[in-house]
Design a protein around this nucleic acid. Sequence first.
DNA 1: AAGACGAAAGTGGTTGA
DNA 2: TCAACAACTTTCGTCTT
Length: 322
Amino acid sequence: MDQTRGTTDRKDTISESTKEPIACSECGSTSVVEDTTRGERVCGGCGLVLSDHRIDTGAEWRAFSTEENDARSRVGAPTRYTVHDKGLSTVIDWRDRDTSGKKLSPTRRSEIYRLRKWQIRSRVHSSMDRNLAQAMSELERLSSQLGIPGPIRELAALLYRKSIIQKLVRGRSIEAMVAATLYAACRIRMKPRPLDEVADASRVDKKKLGQCYRLLLRSLAIKIPLSNPIDYISRFASQLSLSSPVQLRTVEILQRSRDIGLTIGRDPLGLAAAAIYVASIMLDERRTQREIAEVARVTEVTVRNRYKEIVKKLGIDPMTLG
DNA sequence: AAGACGAAAGTGGTTGA
DNA sequence: TCAACAACTTTCGTCTT
C-alpha cells in the first residue's frame, strides 16, 4: 500500500514564489514555498503555513505511482464529481419489458436480471471508491497540516476503510469522519493530539468530531488506552523549547501523581500542562502559566488547579522550587 | 506592567431515575 | 427525557514580583 506517498511529482508542484514577497510573521524570512498539492503557502525559513485553502489549479485526479501519473492525461473539460457517475452510466430499468412494452422471454429476463445485479454492485463499489478518494485527499491535507507522520496516516486510512464498510460515513460528513479516524489513529499510536487541534485543522467542530470519534470506537470495537498525559509532554516541551531534563522531571511528576491517584477523572491535557509548569520552575526554566496553557489548549485556571493539587499532594514546597 | 491567584457564574457532557 | 453533578472555562478583581 503506497497511497500516501508518491501522489504526484513534487518538483512539478512546489515552486519558489518570486512575486509578491511576504515576510514570515514567525521568522521574518521572505522565502515562500507554494505547495499546490496542499493548497498552502509555506514559509521557506521555518515552515509556518502562511495561508491555506488556496484554489488548486492542478489536475483533479490522483495517481498512485509515477507510471500512472504519466499515463493519466487528457484534454477537454474536467469530469464532474458532483454527478456521482459523471453522467456516463446506463441505467437498466426494473420493468421486465422491452422498448416496445412487450414482456421479455424467460431467458432474456434472467439475462437482464443478471446485468441489473452487476450494475448495482458495480455502482455501489464505485461510489465507495469515490468517497474513499475524496476522504484520502482530505486525510492527506489534514495530516500534513498537523504534521502527522506516514504510519499514523496509514492507520487512519485503514480505520476509514473499515468505517466505510460498516456504513458509518452515511449521513455524516466525510471531513468529520476523516478527522475522527486521524484523531483515533494518533491515540492508538500513543501520539495523541488535542481534540481542539484536530478540530481546528479540519473544518469540523469539536462536538461533531467527538461524536464521530465515539461512534468509531463503538462500531469498530477499537480498544484505545486512556490517553496518558505523559504522551503529550514531548510535544508540549518542544513547543515551549524546554530542555530534556525538564521533560524527564515532568514524567517523574506525572508518574508520582498517578501513583497517588491524582490523575483519575482529570483532563490529561491539564495534568500534562501543570506537570510541565512545576518541572519548569523546579529546573529554573520557568514558563508562564499562560504560555503552557496555550500549547496545552486548556485555561490558566485549570493549570493552576492541577498545579496546586500536585504541589500539595506530592509535598513539593513551592517556596523551595527555584 | 505582567504574571499569579481565587471566586463566582456559565458550559457541555455524563449518569441515574 | 430530565435533573443532578463533576470537571472545565470564562470573567473579573486583587495580590505579588
